[in-house]
């Protein structure tokens, strides 16, 4: 692939984004791509906004992108999709989890959780919505939400040539592998 592809993953601290980007980059590297990934972390507390950027192609220079440059935005939380949407290419795809996590101004009643996020996204962008929480519960563990989203990301990017099951096996504790494979496959189907 001559052109570099840009993936932006966003969500809330504690949702398991870093693990997904780690497995994503591991798979891309195995497939022979040059890969760069940038994550912003450093605050230990849970609950802040978290982003990671993954870029892959023949030769990648910058590890970060600017506005209007992501080919795909995967949002682990609904409102976060709208926060980062400016980074998506106008013709790009947003994959959004319907899961809501209220931020502090919402929890304390100073602001309201926006009701029209999905409609607003759909109006401007190619939007794929899914309920990763429900899928994870069906699989048997709500904590596999991130892996459901991982599957959805792989599907949206058409990255079928990579053996993702093997990547899951290599990166997860052995007793968690089977349930996560199910979650991943669920994500591929959604």
């Amino acid at each position: 692939m001559k052109v570099t592809k840009n993936i932006l993953l966003v969500g809330v601290g504690g949702q398991g984004i870093i693990l997904v980007s780690k497995m994503l980059t591991a798979g891309l590297m195995k497939a022979g791509y040059d890969v760069k990934m940038s994550e912003v972390h450093g605050m230990a507390q849970r609950g802040g906004s978290v982003t990671t950027q993954v870029r892959f192609g023949e030769k990648v220079y910058s590890s970060i992108i600017g506005k209007g440059q992501a080919d795909i935005l995967v949002s682990f939380e609904k409102m976060e999709a709208a926060r980062w949407i400016e980074y998506l290419k106008p013709e790009g795809t947003v994959v959004v989890n319907r899961y809501e996590i209220p931020s502090m101004p919402i929890a304390t009643g100073k602001a309201e959780y926006p009701q029209n996020v999905l409609e607003a996204l759909e109006k401007e962008f190619k939007t794929v919505t899914l309920d990763a929480g429900q899928a994870a519960i069906e699989v048997g563990n709500i904590r596999t939400q991130n892996i459901v989203l991982f599957g959805a990301l792989v599907k949206a990017l058409n990255l079928n040539e990579i053996d993702w099951i093997e990547i899951l096996r290599e990166n997860l504790p052995s007793k968690m592998v089977d349930i996560n494979i199910k979650a991943f496959q669920k994500g591929l189907e959604l």
Binding site: Q45, A82, V117
Partner: peptide
């Protein structure tokens, strides 16, 4: 670079 926003009220998510 061309970029677009969407029409919704995004609420801040400060660390707590």
């Amino acid at each position: 670079t061309e970029s677009k926003t969407v029409d919704t009220n995004v609420v801040a998510r400060p660390p707590v």
